[in-house]
Design a protein around this nucleic acid. Structure first.
Length: 267
DNA sequence: TTGTGTTTTATTGCCTCC
DNA sequence: GGAGGCAATAAAACACAA
């Protein structure tokens, strides 16, 4: 395209002003004046009367870029609200009404659509952000509830801790390494389950052999018959809550009985 | 008054559709 | 291939603080 710039004649009579590479201003092909000579500017937002007063423009010729009057903008805005696309008929009609070139009307609509899009993006962003903030706050309260339950669980665990065998009770020759009480074992597992860390899902036997028992979803298969004895751990469903899923529903979903595996056997 | 940031008008180049 | 739309950009006009 041409590197020069074209401007519409201020008087809106359809003549073009052409700024060539040398910054000279041409009107209808002949040089009128250069940029230095064009420094006379009308004040911003002249009255509509001024805008269409030929004498005014005879004195003020030529203009570079000119803002539309509030009246022109109002009419354009109204038209934009009705329909943000511009059919050729409406364009020429509007241009006539406003005393502008159809091209100027088209450009105004184009820029207006761009502004609308930017605003729309901002609105969408705000909406997403508030939605995100609400999710974060929800998550925080769930986390607090989780911690509360964990603390409760720990305190109950301590209460259930088996006493150290005393001298009086003696040493059981038949069973030198007694397994922990089944329910205590379960509590330890559930506690693992409640852990918020990413490592909380893999269960390893706690006597140091490092054998992986479970990847996180099926460890209760070893503990049939003991679920009811865990106190203080309730699913939300038990409380009649219908919001979200249950924290423990998967934990308490009793699986089909399966063959116990190897050394990990309940008495 | 002047420097700086924002808004508005307009151009340019590319893309899509008919 | 021309018309029209859009994104990116330029530049004038304007607002405002220092």
């Amino acid at each position: 395209m041409d590197s020069g710039r074209i401007f519409f004649d201020s008087s809106c009579n359809g003549n073009l002003l052409f700024l060539g590479n040398g910054d000279s201003i041409f009107r209808g092909g002949s040089r009128v004046m250069n940029m230095g000579e064009s420094s006379k500017r009308r004040p911003f937002l002249s009255t509509a009367e001024d805008l269409y007063d030929e004498e005014y423009y005879d004195e003020q010729l030529p203009e570079k870029k000119r803002r539309l009057t509030p009246d022109q903008v109002n009419l354009l805005e109204k038209s934009f609200e009705e329909e943000n696309k511009l059919e050729p008929e409406r364009k020429t009609e509007l241009a006539k009404k406003l005393g502008l070139q159809p091209r100027q009307v088209a450009i105004w609509f184009q820029n207006r659509r761009a502004r609308w899009k930017t605003k729309q993006l901002e609105r969408d962003y705000d909406q997403l952000k508030s939605s995100y903030d609400s999710l974060v706050s929800n998550y925080d309260s769930i986390l607090k509830e989780n911690n509360k339950l964990k603390a409760e669980l720990i305190s109950l665990t301590e209460k259930l801790q088996p006493k150290e065998p005393t001298q009086e009770e003696g040493f059981d020759m038949q069973n030198p390494n007694p397994t922990p009480a089944p329910c205590l074992h379960l509590i330890m597992k559930v506690e693992d389950r409640l852990s918020t860390g990413s490592n909380g899902s893999a269960v390893v036997d706690e006597d140091g052999r490092g054998q992986l028992l479970d990847s996180g979803d099926s460890y209760l298969q070893y503990q049939q018959g003991c679920l009811a004895s865990v106190e203080g751990v309730k699913s939300e469903e038990d409380e009649g809550s219908d919001e979200g899923g249950s924290y423990f529903s998967d934990v308490f979903a009793a699986p089909e009985p399966q063959e116990p595996v190897g050394w990990f056997m309940w008495p």
